[in-house]
Write a protein that binds this DNA or RNA. Structure first.
Lengths: 235, 235
DNA sequence: TCATAATACTTGTACGTACAAGTAATATTT
DNA sequence: AAATATTACTTGTACGTACAAGTATTATGA
């Protein structure tokens, strides 16, 4: 069970960023500094930093250093940081159901892991507003087995993903999605203030995380007439 | 205008793959072979191969070698290889308009580059079927200035992106997308054999390519009731 | 004072070496 | 004949060195 040196450095630095010891915009120690501090060569230091770059925790600047980045690479459709950065600034959130023990919903469209189904489920539901316009209803399910004390406190900066990262050091590592255009049901048309029968974008997401025991299932219902759902991708 | 060595090797190998001199499943020359053939060190050879890995042209296998991969990483929503691999096998395509000189459509929802607007436009339009069910109408626009002889021959293996790669050595490097749920217009309901007023998923895509002068604009109208649009992403 | 040069940092590329570890065919032993 | 050991490859990790090139501050000279 021996870990390689570059992974050790990589994990150390990642942890420091997650704990907030290095904030967005800060520069990590230089390669030479890492060499001295951890008794490694530049090859090893660079490999650790290159890995952080690949995961887009940092960006490297020739002649300057490695700077901590805002980590919002697109995971398919949505940002890992959640809804806020995807649309804009004037975002408000209303909890319809605060996080609490619940049941795995039958409306989950993607296959749910056996393991998840056999463990306790935490559920919460929100509506997102741009200004005073509701634009998305969001239902979320996940297994509570790996998140002790989750129900005891509020979200960090109002963000579920930030809470995962800063409190539990869990990162989103992937997702699968299904997209459907549907007609709004009675409930959704009420909540989203649109006429029944309006078209609605239904997104079913399964998020994978750095903890193999934690997957997050979300069903999103989006009003796209004014704010289309957007996404970018670059190699 | 000096190129680095690892980029030289990287481009050479990429070209060989694109030309088909190395097919999917083939193994590239080993690191030591590259060292001998190009008079470089393993550091440099590895860097070139690592770059190809990052672009997912190859996958490396400890103790075996570097194998050419099927390149179908998701670019946001759709595969770079196009629609075929996204849904399944039983795909048919019907051209409503074969590629020909056309005008930049007013229905393009993403911003079109100034440069593109000022050059000749090639347009083509297709309908995709799963079995005998139409599932997507696809409108495509791009500047013809960088694709000589494009109108003279058919698509390679019926795929636009494969034609770009194999004939012109141009790869997709990114995309931006906008998604909307809409009600099918008269025309779309006819073409897609759904009743007028059915919900439809409207995807507006701008593809960026390895040639800065070539961007591809697509407007996709998808029937998602049976075949939802899917996508996966992993770090 | 202000433009220029020197400097001390940073990361980027490339060299070379050594050994660990995975793979697969061949040779050896039981 | 079958299990085992050897071997010759492969990629992975890590060491060390050298110089190029970008950045920013400090020192110098007109």
């Amino acid at each position: 069970m021996k870990e390689t040196k570059y992974k050790e450095i990589h994990n150390y630095l990642k942890g420091q960023i997650q704990k907030g010891n290095y904030q967005v915009g800060d520069y990590l120690p230089s390669e030479n500094e890492l060499c001295a501090r951890f008794s490694i060569t530049r090859t090893t230091a660079r490999k650790a930093l290159d890995e952080l770059t690949r995961e887009s925790f940092i960006e490297r600047q020739h002649g300057k250093g490695s700077r901590v980045k805002e980590r919002r690479q697109s995971l398919g459709l949505l940002n890992v940081k959640g809804f806020s950065e995807a649309v804009g600034e004037n975002i408000k959130t209303l909890f319809l159901k605060k996080p609490a023990a619940g049941k795995w919903g039958s409306e989950i469209m993607v296959p749910v892991n056996e393991n998840d189904l056999n463990s306790d489920c935490i559920y919460f539901e929100r509506i997102r507003f741009v200004g005073y316009e509701p634009v998305m209803r969001e239902k979320n399910w996940f297994s509570g087995q790996v998140l002790p004390d989750f129900l005891d406190s509020e979200f960090i900066e109002g963000s579920f993903f930030k809470t995962l990262s800063k409190k539990y050091f869990i990162e989103i590592t992937g997702s699968t999605q299904e997209l459907r255009a549907e007609l709004a049901c009675e409930k959704n048309s009420q909540l989203l203030k649109i006429s029944p029968g309006s078209p609605i974008l239904h997104i079913s997401v399964k998020f994978y995380t750095s903890n193999p025991k934690l997957n997050i299932y979300s069903e999103l219902y989006c009003v796209t007439s004014v704010y289309p759902v957007g996404n970018s991708y670059f190699i």
